[in-house]
Design a protein around this nucleic acid. Sequence first.
DNA 1: GTCTATAGAAAGATAGAC
DNA 2: GTCTATCTTTCTATAGAC
Lengths: 194, 194
Amino acid sequence: MPYSSDHKQQSREKILDSALYLFTRHGYDSITIDQLMKHAGLTRGAFYAHFANKSEVYAEAILAALQRRPEMMPADDNLNDKDWLKQLFFNYLSHEHVNEKSSACPLAFLATDVANRDPAARDAYTEVYKQLSRLIGDKLMPHADHRSAFAITAMMIGGVALCRALSETKTSEQVLDSCRQTALRLLEESGTNP
Amino acid sequence: MPYSSDHKQQSREKILDSALYLFTRHGYDSITIDQLMKHAGLTRGAFYAHFANKSEVYAEAILAALQRRPEMMPADDNLNDKDWLKQLFFNYLSHEHVNEKSSACPLAFLATDVANRDPAARDAYTEVYKQLSRLIGDKLMPHADHRSAFAITAMMIGGVALCRALSETKTSEQVLDSCRQTALRLLEESGTNP
DNA sequence: GTCTATAGAAAGATAGAC
DNA sequence: GTCTATCTTTCTATAGAC
């Protein structure tokens, strides 16, 4: 065995990193296996030593997002839950996110892309979404109804997906601004609505 | 000229109807010109008498949505603005919409699909979005800040796009329910927040 | 495990008959 | 204007050398 099992694992991780990066930004159909492998520093043929086909690496890449640490997530250390959420809302509903300056959330970037894929991809997407909504729901708990986490995440995902599709910066600004304000309002006012 | 100009116009409309139907449900890349023309009752070759290429018909199809009457829109007649909005929220944030039983909104179904297309498609999408947000904003005006229309539309679009991607019916139910409740809440409580 | 080379299929776009 | 036939490109997936 001229290549160690560790080396194979490293290649696999490199491919998954590239897949998450490229698929999230350009969608499933726009990325070829050739592009993917070149981005990972390998060639086309090596791909099939790691994955059975293109749709498999797509689903795996979405799941891999759970292992990576998104820059948008505030560092847990000194923030209370409310401030942590505020920070997340601002990071997520930002131009930096829409324009992919920071890491790009597959939930927002692949929402309609995943809907047209196979069950494995949708399962992976569902798993990532459940983790995000649970995280937000838990931090929301003392302040708001746990269930409003679903509406807030839908607004976050929808706001970013929408702005990425829009061609007018001005409208995009208005959408992000309105979503940020409304997210804060839902957080602040939730105590008054038991 | 063996074919009247009216006949050509009719063919064009048939193609646009099919394009709106198919692209919205399956995305740009999944639909071939062959499928599109068969759905419209014509053959591949005839396509290029109407459109220069595939990306052109995609943008035109999105714009065509403005001419069609979506079943989700409540009939204007007897409803006041607030009830009209409530009705729209329930129609839009429904399983019938997610599962394409009624007409499918391209804003929700194509959000991330359009982001990967050319400027013409994004311009068309932007135009449709501006019309929806203006309509909702105007009806919201007496009750709420005009600008909260952007957050509400983002939640509607995000909620439907999200549910279409999810593979768990239960989670999907929770998302739609939470979005409906929150949309109503934003409508009801808006008066208290000048 | 990774490489180059290639088979095989799919789909966008064009040509020419009617 | 619409049809059938075809050119051409692109891309997934496989084969075989190292």
